[in-house]
Design a protein around this nucleic acid. Structure first.
Lengths: 348, 348
DNA sequence: GGCGGATGTGGTAGCGCTCTCACGGCGTGA
DNA sequence: TCACGCCGTGAGAGCGCTACCACATCCGCC
């Protein structure tokens, strides 16, 4: 037991005014002490602190929030199946980054997971009914009402990834996916490859489209016309990468380079190439995307495009903090695009 | 925009009594409608619902909590470095299980992470100041004040893992670690092994001690005295398992069986055995603990002790719900020990 | 026809806190 | 000596909501 409970049998949590009475001061003074106002005499402060300790007083946040209209907490909404949340290094890195940016501030971070329509509804209620001061939205689904609901409720929000279509005026942070696709392709070109295929992500995701566009940019820059037969879509998983690569090889036996739009898919593609008897990078050079930890341990180690996940996370936190601190003047339209970078290893 | 905002330039969130006025009823009636009370005439209900929709009314939870004294949210406190949270399948499974048990209820689940003393303090404040109705505590550190603070604050709590020493009257859910250690050892004995070593977890963790005790039980049951040279401690990581196994082999070149207290460590041990030229299971039979997904794909596939993670998670949720629903009569002393089971594959 | 009980409704106190305002006491400068 | 400002403090009005109580109806029953 860390607190002395009063002799009464039942448990009663002392209120601020009870503390005030016991300390011989007014409620206002106790409030000042609790909130660290400088306008309190040392004597009063001491008396109040003693009373607080003796009675085991804990402020009631609901009452406080009711009047201050803020909760000092911000939510990270993870709207993905949890097997992805707990396995995809992307989420881990983002949560880590945001969490450490928020750690030293006064804000408390809470994680909310959505994996069913009912949970979506509950989270919508949770964030709009005043439990949080701000929210970070990770990977929203198409048709997600959250951005609009949050905008209506005037709740500061930052999204990860460029929002699609209607989700209008929200600030967001994204990697330069198009630029990344381009540098990957340019690299393949620069090492002399000319018959370059690509495995894309699911084309209903903005990031996948952007990376593909970057691939096209690269080809066109070298005077090559992208062709349909050299493109195959996966769903960012390792298995789909293997399938896509197999299909690509069947259609284009002579391809000598491939840009795979995610590292897990690249791992799968590597397997497919191995099974097909192609040597990497001698026969086919391969560039991935993400630079997950495993990429360095692949056979051969993966040349890949790194997105600065830590920096992206930090930027999201920063953007949210900015909205949180000067809401009045904030126009809510900021966005940050983080540049990507080629990590050269062996596969290309 | 999903709601019609009033023509006034500035944003004003309508209150319950404004809705009441607009609907031509009293605040009490609006409250009844919002909270789904049956004691409302269809006409009134309709009027209120129309007003709510028209004004975009969203109830204020702080005000509600202030009077009802509950928040309808429960927290899962993850007190571990996030690299473990996001990599150790144990946490993923627990969070998944708890989350799905809570999903269909009225409660909202929030995840709180602690990875620094400051964050610990903030979380302590968060949970005691009335943000949550109940908490699930995952893997508390020794000297953690949370259990005591929560007990003082009379906040229903369930811990994962048997609490150490002082953390008195809290309900918890744990695997039968001792029993698991025993069945692992018994199995090794049953396949004719007699010189059985063990790699334990960190001995300041209850689970590690329990598994070790089970190992001793097994040996003693077969009339064998456990000896110090056959015991080496790791820290549950793969790397430490390799080191420990190497040490064990050096000291006991003739050992023919080993119980490794976690699967990641078992993977490391497998490497050490391989490097030392021992065949598994022919020369040395090995049993792990946890049955992580990777265990089935090890070389050779791992015989291991499975803890029913899903069931443990469900039990934690269940225990918490029980406390949440009939707090008055609840004595807070329940605990559930989930039995473990041997999964036989190739390594033993 | 009158009475008891169910039913729908409104009035309103108060949950615990913050924050504005007012006030008395003190130090300073003229 | 008096006017002025600053400082520490207390009184009290709400924040938005729920829950209790009181009150009108209306129904069915003896």
């Amino acid at each position: 037991m860390t607190a002395l409970t009063p002799g009464t049998g039942s448990h009663h949590r002392p209120t601020l005014s009870e503390v005030a009475r016991s300390a011989g001061v007014s409620a206002a003074t106790v409030s000042r002490v609790v909130n660290g106002s400088p306008r309190v005499s040392p004597a009063a402060r001491e008396a109040v602190e003693a009373a607080i300790a003796a009675m085991g007083y804990v402020p009631n946040r609901a009452a406080r929030s009711l009047v201050t209209r803020q909760t000092d907490t911000i939510a990270v909404v993870l709207s993905e199946p949890e097997e992805r949340i707990f396995s995809d290094p992307f989420f881990a890195a983002m949560v880590r980054g945001i969490s450490s940016a928020v750690a030293e501030t006064e804000w408390q971070l809470v994680l909310l997971m959505i994996q069913s329509p009912l949970e979506r509804l509950k989270v919508e209620r949770y964030v709009t009914q005043g439990h949080v001061d701000g929210v970070v939205l990770m990977s929203l689904h198409s048709g997600d009402r959250l951005p609009d609901l949050l905008a209506d409720a005037r709740i500061p929000t930052v999204m990860s990834g460029r929002p699609t279509g209607t989700a209008g005026f929200v600030s967001y942070v994204d990697a330069d996916n198009r630029g990344g696709g381009r540098i990957a392709t340019d690299h393949l070109l620069s090492i002399g490859r000319t018959r370059i295929a690509t495995v894309t992500g699911p084309m209903d995701m903005v990031a996948a489209v952007d990376r593909f566009d970057g691939y096209c940019d690269g080809l066109r820059g070298a005077g090559i016309r992208p062709t349909k037969t050299m493109v195959e879509a996966g769903d960012f998983t390792d298995h789909s990468g293997e399938q896509a690569m197999t299909a690509l090889l069947r259609r284009n036996p002579d391809l000598d380079g491939v840009f795979v739009a995610s590292d897990p898919m690249a791992m799968g593609a590597l397997r497919a190439l191995d099974k097909a008897g192609r040597r990497v990078p001698d026969d086919v050079a391969l560039v991935g995307f993400d630079d997950i930890a495993m990429a360095a341990y692949a056979h051969p180690p993966l040349t890949t495009v790194r997105q600065p996940l830590d920096q992206m996370a930090a930027s999201m936190a920063e953007l949210l903090m900015a909205q949180l601190s000067d809401e009045s003047t904030y126009d809510g339209l900021d966005h940050i695009i983080c540049s990507t970078e080629l990590v050269r290893r062996v596969s290309a």
